[in-house]
Simulated assay, not measured.
Amino acid sequence: MAGHIIPHFQNDGGHEMVEIGVSEFMCVGANPPFDHPHVYLDLGDEGEKVCGYCSTLYRRNAALHGTETIPPGCAFEERGAA
């Protein structure tokens, strides 16, 4: 894996496709407690990949940066213990 922080994305909305601005990331499915094992995905040369756990299609969009997504709000942010 790369020597940088890998962004995490989730799909609470059940969207068929989520556009992201990175090629390497972790899919968590939905926010806890409804998440699946956090899996590393690499979009490779095709620029898209389906998560084997939640069936979300992730597609690279070069116009997006960091954790921006289309639809908005699919970046996963770890919440601290309550």
Rank of each mutant, 00 (worst) to 15 (best):
A81K: 14
I5P: 00
A62M: 05
L43D: 06
A82H: 13
I5R: 06
P7V: 01
A2W: 00
G21F: 05
A75D: 15
Y40N: 07
E19T: 11
E77P: 00
I20C: 02
E24L: 03
V28G: 12
N31G: 13
H38D: 08
N61V: 06
V28E: 13
V39H: 03
V22Q: 09
H15I: 02
G80A: 14
E68L: 00
H36G: 11
S23R: 12
H36P: 04
E48K: 07
R60I: 11
I20H: 06
L57Q: 10
S23Q: 06
I5A: 03
M26Q: 09
D45H: 00
V28R: 14
H36W: 08
P72H: 11
L57N: 10
V39C: 06
Y58F: 15
Q10I: 15
K49Q: 14
H15W: 14
G52S: 12
E77T: 08
S55P: 00
V28H: 10
F34Q: 12
L41W: 03
K49P: 03
S23V: 00
E78W: 03
A81D: 15
V28F: 02
V50G: 00
G13N: 14
H65P: 00
G3Y: 01
P37K: 05
E77L: 03
G21H: 12
C27L: 04
H8W: 01
P72Y: 08
H65V: 03
E46T: 02
L43V: 04
T67D: 08
C51R: 08
C51S: 04
C27S: 13
T69V: 04
N61P: 04
G80W: 07
N61K: 08
G52E: 15
S55D: 12
V22G: 03
F25R: 08
L41P: 07
E46D: 11
M26W: 07
